[in-house]
Amino acid sequence: MRPVRLLAPATLVAALALSGCATSPYTGPVEVTRFVAPDPAGLGQGTIALSFPDELGNAAARAAFTSAVTKELTRLGYTVVPEGVPASQTAAIRTSRSGIAAATDNRRGPVNVGVGGQTGSFGSGLGMGVGINLGGGRESPSVMTDLAVRISRDDGTTLWEGRSQIATGVKSPYSQITTSAQTLAAGLFRDFPGGNGETVTISVKKLQGN
């Protein structure tokens, strides 16, 4: 009589081990806040140039956000001109990524990023979302990526400004620079120009394909 095998096959053991430790990547919604000038004449039309007022050391991030914002501005009706070419309006772009520390009670406190402000930098090593695991043993919000854009006339008058931000886990596809740039830009310019002072929350699923 053959002895009864009490050990499960190696493949089953591996599958059980993976099912026990697998986690779903965390992807939060995009939170958008916008402000519109009382007299926004010319908004959404004419020529516009892009600028980065703050140093952005991560070349990949600069390229990704330039492409994403250009796409959205073009969709709105602007003609985006190359850097150095005079334009009737300017879109000042600021973006940053910062780590979210895990709280001792496992609850994430609010992260506030003012329009035009920065809490981190893509040049600080956080730009690719690699090697950051501040949320403990399970996938949780680990990084906050934000995008702020201010549109001004050539005389310096601000016509519109807005900010979008998203919290993601390290394993989320939305932690990748290109994907996060496209998603944040799509959310920021969705239903442009938006209500003055309003804050809206948009699911990333609604922004897919934009």
Results as ranks from 00 to 15, higher is better:
S67C: 00
S19K: 08
S124K: 03
V111F: 10
P141S: 05
F122C: 01
R2L: 09
D155P: 12
P173F: 09
A185P: 04
L134G: 15
M144I: 10
G195I: 04
A101K: 11
T23I: 00
S180R: 10
V32R: 01
S172E: 08
A63F: 05
A167T: 07
K205M: 11
R108A: 14
V143N: 02
G136N: 07
G129H: 04
R190H: 12
M144V: 06
A17P: 01
V149K: 00
A92Q: 06
A22H: 08
T201F: 00
T27S: 13
G136L: 08
E72Q: 15
L6F: 10
L134R: 06
G187T: 07
T47W: 01
L7V: 15
V13L: 13
T104F: 13
A17I: 04
A14Y: 10
T70K: 03
L56K: 02
L126V: 09
G57K: 13
L12N: 03
A17S: 11
M128G: 05
T23C: 08
R2F: 14
E83T: 15
I100T: 08
S88C: 02
R108I: 14
T179H: 12
G197T: 08
S175R: 13
T201R: 12
V81N: 00
A63S: 09
E55D: 08
E72R: 14
A186Q: 06
D155K: 07
N106C: 12
R62V: 10
T11H: 10
G109C: 03
T66R: 12
E72Y: 00
T158K: 05
S142A: 14
L7F: 10
V85F: 08
M128T: 09
S121E: 09
D54G: 03
N58V: 05
R2M: 09
A60W: 00
G120F: 04
L7E: 11
P25V: 00
L147R: 03
L159A: 10
T23V: 11
L56S: 05
R163H: 14
A103W: 03
L73S: 04
V111W: 06
S142D: 15
